[in-house]
Each structure stands twice: as structure tokens, then as C-alpha cells.
Design a protein around this nucleic acid. Sequence first.
RNA 1: GGAGAGAUGGCCGAGUCGGUCGAAGGCGCUCCCCUGCUAAGGGAGUAUGGGGUCAAAAGCUCCAUCGAGGGUUCGAAUCCCUCUCUCUCCGCCA
Length: 428
Amino acid sequence: MIDPKLLRSDPEGVAKILKRRGMQFDWQVLRDCEARRKAVQQRAEGLQAERNALAKRVGQAKARAEDVTPLLAGQEQLSRDLAAAQQELETILEKWRRLTEVLPNLPAADVPDGTTEEDNVEIRRVGAIAAKDFPVRDHVDLGDRLGMDFAAAARIAGARFVVLSGPLARLQRALTQFMLDLHTREHGYTEIYVPYLVNRDSLFGTGQLPKFADDLFHVKDAGLALIPTAEVPVTNMVRDAIVAGADLPLRWVAHTPCFRSEAGSAGRDTRGMIRQHQFEKVELVQVVEPADSARVHEELTAHAEEVLKRLDLPYRVMALCAGDLGFASRKTYDLEVWLPGSGRYREISSCSNFGDFQARRLNARYRQTGQKPETVHTLNGSGLAVGRTLVAVLENYQQADGRIRVPDVLVPYMGGLKELVPAAPRAS
RNA sequence: GGAGAGAUGGCCGAGUCGGUCGAAGGCGCUCCCCUGCUAAGGGAGUAUGGGGUCAAAAGCUCCAUCGAGGGUUCGAAUCCCUCUCUCUCCGCCA
């Protein structure tokens, strides 16, 4: 939610900033709506004050056992006027909500200009891409005899699911454990376990609703949806709360499955584990004081990068341009890992500073002792998307014979196993 | 799933037959006094959001909010309805 005070006082200025996202919106409608709101609210509140004063006089008269009928004369008209004014005000407020809750966050000043992915700016590249002296395979080919089974998943559930078995299942668990341990032991995050089904208010708070309902799996009977990311339940920890200033920053790390309908991406990334309806993710969330959020955004990104560094996976950091920013974000860095199988970098983490945008929708505040409550800032980032990390490990650690070397940091998590060995080709 | 009880300010908790209740009291917190330090004590203050006034802040003032939504009424924390959540007992169960 954009600060309503800003929206009311300078809708044109807001429209100008949102234009950087490639977004046109009719700010004059907002301005007119606001002008009417002010007039009607004043009228409605004036009538309410009148009614309250009358009720008070009636009460006092009754207490003195006086006849109250003369006082009640004319109140019918008042009731009708009041009801009409309130009705009108409600209509205007509803319109205001409808117009403003779909407005995305304002990009930070240092977000690069641009309209599409193509305009994102590479900030840095880390890790050398190892030259292979054999034909590289992608994770689907490699996984085929390691326990990656898309056919079984299709039978069980449908397209865009996968079954992992044996060492691959364990590798996924190892990656998860490694990430959780790194963030809890070295980066100061508290591990948190949360619901995987969330209600409408939670989805509204983080910005998935009302605009992006189609991206979710809904459990209609229960009025709930499967989480598309742990960001939703974790960030909602502070919804409708006033946190003590001394308790900030809040830092949480959660491992959850994520569920996405991928409506609108039919035909895209249909091969392999890159784009699934269900995938595992380790998510970092921070709730901080406004003055800290820009710095924390850099730190949180570094925390996610550290996972890639320790896995020795080559990656680059991209600053998203204004046109490519997510709905709720004021600034985002994407981490893209090198995938030899497709010869390109692929997003494996997205680290965003939401400023006060989510916090406003969530009504999430903090209070310094003796001060007024103030809106917090929220941030999050994948640390990392586990499924895609698994893909990256397979493709970057493959050997000429199809074996996968286990990254050093994962060996303890694999019970000492140093190599994944493909099963012999099936005799058929 | 069955039966019952409840939801009030940062926390606990009172609200009588609906009337001057944004709400007693306590705890906590803030400031001041007292005190060699600590402990104890005395005093004052202490919900949130919005509108108006103001250059702005302070102040003043108005409106809303006693789980949420609707209703009855001149007037609802108090009465009625629906929903959500919590608790107790029984049943079932990972």
C-alpha cells in the first residue's frame, strides 16, 4: 500500500514515479475521489456529532425523569440524513480502496530504468565457470538414472511435478539442512515453522491479493490457499502487531514447500525441474526499522549469496529495472546461478526490500519506548530455492561419466557420501 | 463431530435494569519528587486510526474503534443474529 497521505496530497507525483514501472494510471480520478471524500466525510461526521449530542441530552433528561418527546422531534430527519451521508461515504471509501490497493510499490530512486528483464543491470559476477572437456548434460538427462522421475510424478499428480528418490531425495534434504544451518548459525536468523495454507488477509498483506489470485492454488472449501512462498506466512507474523523497538530487527528463516499454479506460463520451461507447481525453498525474512532497510537489503542479499559461494556455484547478481520489479517491491536483486546444461544464468533467488508497502497492508508497526507507533519495513529473499539449487549442483558438478561429485560442504549432510553414481542402464 | 464457557486498552481485569464509558482498579511503562546506592515510597502521565484548525509542531476539537460483520434503538462494551478465534468436557485421530 502506497502511503495514503502521499497519495492524497500528491497523486500526480505518485503517477509520475509509477510511470517508471511502465504503469499508467489516472491520477485525476484519485484526486476527484479524494476531494469528494473530504467533503462527504465532514458532512457525515458533523451529523454524527449532532446525533451524539442529542442522545446525550435525552439521557440526561431521562435521568431527571423529564419528558423527552420534544427532544425527539426532528430526529427522524437527522437519522435519514446521517444514513445517506454514511452510505455515500462508504461508497467513496470503497472506490478509493479499489483504486489504490492494486497500485504497486514505488521503485526506489536507485532502481535502474527499464521496462523488461532485458534492462536489468548486472551488479557483479562471482565464481568462475569451469570449462568441461566433455559434452555437458542437463539435469533431466543426468537425473534420469539418479532417481529423478517425471513420468511417475505425472501419473501421481500431473505435469510440473517431480519425484526424487534415493540419493537425489537425500541431496535435496542435504541442501535444505545446509542452508538452514548456515542462516541460523552464522547469519543470526531464527528458524520458524509455519502453516502452508493461508487465509485471504495474509495474502492481501504481502501483496498476492487481490491482483494475483490466479497464480495460487486455492482450497476453496476452507477459504485458504497454498503458499506460493514462505514469505506469506512468515511476514504475516507481524500483521496487526506493534513490535517493541528493542526487538527489531526480526530475522526469520523458514523451509517450506511452495505451490504455484504457473497460470500464464503454459509452454514455458516445461522440461525439467526449473518451473514446478511444487518446490522447496528456504526463505529469509526480516522486519526492520525504516532507516535500516536499505543496508539490511544488501546484507540479506549477501546471506543468500553465501549459500552459492559455499557450494562453489558460479552466479551473478542482477539489479531489477523498474519495469521488472515485483508488485510489492521497491528494490530487488536477483541471484542467477550458472546452469551448464542450458548454458545460461537462471534465477535462483530474489531478494527484495518492500519498504513500508507490505507493512501498511499488514498494519505492522513498531514502537520505540515513549514514541508513537511507526510502520516497519519488511524484506525477504530466497536463501535459496532448493529445487533449482539441486539442478545447479547436478549440472555444475557432473563428471564425464554422469557421476555427480557431492559439493564439499554437503558431504557431512550426505553421511560422508562423496559421489552420486547413476544406476546401470535398464535392460530393455 | 457432540455439549458448554468466553473474546474489553501493552498485560491482567471491572463494567450494575442499554444513557454523560474510550471505558473503574491493578500491573507494566514514561517523567518528576524523595533517597548515599539498591529496595521501598509520593505525584503526574500513559490506546489506535482518521478528519478539522495550524506554515508546521504542540494544543484544541470532532468522528470511529470494547474479536469481525449485520440488526434493534434517539442512544449499544452492554440486547438480537451471523461468522471467526480461544478455553473446558466427551468422541475420534497423525
